[in-house]
Structure formats: structure tokens, C-alpha cells
């Protein structure tokens, strides 16, 4: 992983079209501003992982067979 040090108000540019700005730092919280093309989704990682886990559970084979039989 690339690690870069930034101060409040400084920014990073990724791939010519994404800009991350450090807006504020308070204690152990950092506020990050993201400018990216509209079609690039941005998620909080813990929420993303939760949905990913749920999607895996949705396609879980045992449950599906059971549902199909139930209906």
C-alpha cells in the first residue's frame, strides 16, 4: 500500500479524475472530501463489506433451494 502524509487542506489526485482533500482533522477523526466522476461509486468500507456479505448470503445455495420449494 502506498502511504502518503498530508496536512489539513492538502489533497491527492488519483488517475487524473479523482481528488481526495483532507478537509478537517479532529482527534482520531479525519474528514475527507472526494471529487470524482458521478459514475464512480464511493462507499464507507464497513457498509460495503456488510452489503457484500449479505449478497453472498442471498446467493447461498441451501436457502435458495428451500425458497424455491416453498413457493
Amino acid at each position: 500500500m502506498l502511504a502518503l502524509t498530508r496536512r489539513k487542506g492538502e489533497a491527492l489526485v488519483i488517475n487524473n479524475n479523482i481528488e481526495l482533500t483532507i478537509l478537517d482533522i479532529k482527534g482520531d477523526q479525519v474528514k475527507v472530501g472526494i471529487s470524482a466522476p458521478r459514475e464512480i461509486p464511493v462507499y464507507r468500507k464497513e457498509v460495503y463489506l456488510q452489503i457484500q456479505e449479505e449478497n453472498k448470503a442471498v446467493v447461498n445455495a441451501d436457502g435458495l433451494e428451500a425458497l424455491k420449494k416453498l413457493l
Partner: peptide, 18 residues
């Protein structure tokens, strides 16, 4: 919304967050 169907059907749920 997707439906999650675990082995225990009583715990069937839908994902309203996504």
C-alpha cells in the same frame, strides 16, 4: 430488494439498505 433465505426460514430477510 434482495431476499436472504438462510436454512432456518424463520430468519428470512430483505435488504432495505441496498
Amino acid at each position: 430488494t434482495t431476499i436472504t433465505v438462510p436454512k432456518e426460514l424463520e430468519k428470512m430477510s430483505v435488504n432495505l439498505k441496498a
